[in-house]
Amino acid sequence: MVRIKYNTFIFDFDYTLADSTVGIAKSINYALEKLGLAPKNTDEIRKTIGMTLKETFRILTGIESDSVSSDFIHYFMEKADEVMVDNTDLFSDTVLILEQLKNEGFKTAIVTTKVSYRIVEVLEKNRSRHLIDYIVGFEDVREAKPAAEGLLKAVKALNSEKEKVLYIGDSLIDAKTAQNAGIDFAAVTTGTTAAQDFKQFPHILIADSLTNLFAGLRAR
């Protein structure tokens, strides 16, 4: 990989590095069933992936109650501990890209609304934990994305400078997070957000895969 202006690459997880739709759908519908609520179809669920569980519950059900939301989160996590890792697949080019970055000496991190131990479990399953230097999960911040806290925490932990960091994500939440942190952003359209939708936010590049994103960065 040729030299580019960044020395640090920070990634979102769901739909940026991996697809955990099946595990998330199973966990959401288990939680809804436990609450006596109707299940949701996969298309409805996919549109909420990347949000916090509290926001996911509100969007899917219209229920604002904090206590019911807390119960939903409890049941979701109960099922997720059982099914999420086995139902999460890294994208076909994820490990190759991360290996290239590691071999070239770049710093890497993940900032996600998932709990950090889940990311560790998925990476360990794929024998790729060593390719990520730092992970910020939902439990590691007071304010979840699109607040800048998690992204800035990763930058500090990696001893990086903001102008040398690129944040890569698949959603408008990710674009807003980068904007709030004052960090460059690049988008992949491997989630549910179309390329056109990213154009309202500052961005370095929009690509249809990690492979093509890094090819584009090398060509700049």
Rank of each mutant, 00 (worst) to 15 (best):
T113E: 11
T113N: 12
V115S: 15
V115F: 15
Y117W: 15
E121V: 02
V122W: 10
K125C: 01
K125E: 07
S128P: 04
R129F: 00
R129W: 05
H130K: 10
D133L: 05
D133I: 06
D133F: 07
V136Y: 03
G137V: 04
E139H: 08
R142I: 14
P146M: 05
P146N: 05
A147M: 13
A147P: 06
A148V: 12
A148K: 13
A148W: 04
G150T: 01
L151M: 11
L152I: 08
L152A: 08
L152G: 06
L152E: 03
L152M: 09
A154Q: 01
A154H: 02
V155W: 08
L158M: 12
L166M: 02
Y167R: 09
D170C: 10
D170T: 03
D174V: 00
T177Y: 02
A178W: 08
Q179W: 07
Q179E: 08
N180E: 03
I183T: 01
I183W: 01
D184K: 07
D184A: 04
F185N: 00
F185E: 02
A186G: 03
T192N: 15
T192K: 13
Q196N: 14
D197Q: 12
F198L: 09
F198R: 03
K199G: 14
Q200M: 08
Q200A: 13
F201K: 03
F201E: 01
P202V: 12
L205Q: 11
A207W: 04
